[in-house]
Amino acid sequence: MGETVKKERHTKHVYRVLIILGLMTIVVFAVRYVLIPEGWGEYGNFRTGAVADMLEIEPVHGRWDGCKKCHPDQWEAVRTADHATLSCESCHEPLSFHVENGRRKTPMPTDRSYKLCARCHRRIQGRPEGFPQVKIDDHLEEMGGEFGPEVCLDCHASHAPLEGLR
């Protein structure tokens, strides 16, 4: 290779690299151009069609009284007790996991762990003063409970926590 007679510039490969870089740049911008969704940027950094798309999405959660029709007993129990203000889905999974076309599709999982209750009732000073909160260790000691993963349900009924004290 070295014995070329004519004086060469020896930069052929560099130009080829530059050409490839140029092509890559063009491809990047072309791909970007193609991929920018329709309606993007009309009103700022936002795709106008997004709202319409959102409306198409099937809701995962049911209505506030979405469980009432099929579970009137539980509905009654919850609505007349301390957890009256809670939606069923704040402790259970969303309706659509369980029901499809008005029929039960899959069993509704229930979280019986103390973590469910702790999510709302563990003492955290930032919560409103009047909200019922317990320091879990102290509460169990006071009430004579033995800590375990489902300990809260030993005494409290989930749907009517004070009324159903066991």
Binding site: M1, G2, T4, E8, H10, T11, K12, H13, V14, R16, V17, I20
Partner: peptide, 15 residues
């Protein structure tokens, strides 16, 4: 990958 030029002369390497 070598972009079909096998130029490994001194000058090319210097570049």
């Amino acid at each position: 990958v070598a972009l079909f030029t096998y130029d490994i002369s001194e000058e090319a390497l210097a570049v």
